[in-house]
Design a protein around this nucleic acid. Structure first.
Lengths: 126, 126, 126, 126
DNA sequence: GTGGTCTAGACCACA
DNA sequence: GTGGTCTAGACCACA
């Protein structure tokens, strides 16, 4: 369900939080959708339940998720479902920055970057 | 000189190492170029000298940099200067992956992603 | 330094967070004061470092404490030092409510409650 | 009938048990008074019947309540009705301690605490 | 079944 | 030395 890179340097809990945040922003995780239980998610990604718990806590404090005592967490209703394009592009910013910084330091130009992006996108389901 | 994001979750030493590696790969840091001293680099980016030292050690062990007793470290000569395009694109991979994953979870399509990239690129010197 | 009641039903991390919050509000913990390290506080109260870490995280996210990489956490500067009386009384609210609810259910009147409070206060250093 | 604070950190079953205990101690719930059924109480406070059931069991084991097969639970007769003042003040202890600890950490003196208590008491029916 | 709290302890990044 | 992250696993409150 989520893609975690344990050795990327980015803490697992941050990777997971970011992905859930984005899928809530896009509506891919619609409001009121139930999230997997802590144990389920932990098992599926072979990570510790406390790590998942930390993510759920974080996202609840941000208002992205809602806590339901004794029942699964759900995606919060209000401002998080299907954000407008502009809002979703904000979430993209840091990754654009990283890519562009990398591109410049590798002395690539805009077209080379775009070509690389398009070609990677085509093969994204490999 | 380098762009460090202390709160990104990625350790500073990794950010710094990656940037030097890329600038060496592109030839932007040409072979034999002298690097700033540990103290200088640490001061300029308000980071700890030990962090810089760790980066220099790492890059020396990778063969990217060369140590010169009593003199500044330099960019190593051989296989790291001006890598062919294909080699440099390899360095881009993880960032492409991150961007595409983000894009998909935000329900953007390839064109929207490319547009965002081009527009960010235009303003990259803001 | 702090008073923790492990069997009160209130989670330790909440008790600790509340006490630090109050001492920052009163100026008893002045701005820029260094807090004990996680390990030190954990040892002194015989609790787990992770529990203390959770408290420090919580208070940082509230803006009560500040993080200093590699150095002790400090009390944040701005609006937390020496709150005006009215602000500090807010922090008292839940405890007043609890006491009054208890008093009413025990069929005590205001004077009996005040007497009990004054007499407990006198002996507070027992 | 009872006042429950779900987010106070104190388990609901503890809050409920404490309140019934106090109202029995004061005679506000006189001996032989019938308590609401589990379902009724659960519905009124929007809590789970199992939580109420647990409280009733607990208080029965303490001798505060009595079970009557097929009929509502009742307040037990003996030592729990109209405790002498001194006994009831004992029940107050932990709340006095909490209030005084809070007061001291907020750098309030006895008079400020008493004033706050009296003023909150006046408005207790808001 | 769900999440919440806590412990014990490892290893890492950074000063 | 400092805090950050993660694991493995226990026990509890609540549905």
């Amino acid at each position: 369900m989520f893609i975690l890179k344990p050795h990327s340097g980015v803490p697992i809990y941050r990777q997971l939080a970011e992905q859930i945040r984005r899928m809530a922003a896009s509506g891919q995780l619609a409001p009121a959708t139930e999230l997997p239980s802590i144990r389920e998610l932990a098992l599926k990604h072979a990570i510790n339940p406390m790590t998942v718990s930390k993510v759920y806590n974080l996202l609840e404090s941000e208002g992205v998720l809602e806590r339901n005592r004794g029942k699964p967490m759900t995606v919060a209703a209000r401002p998080h479902s299907q954000s407008p394009l502009s809002k979703r592009l904000d979430e993209l910013e840091p990754h654009l920055e990283n890519l562009i910084l990398a591109g410049r330091q590798l002395e690539l130009d805009a077209d080379e970057l775009v070509d690389a992006l398009r070609s990677k996108w085509e093969n994204k389901d490999d």
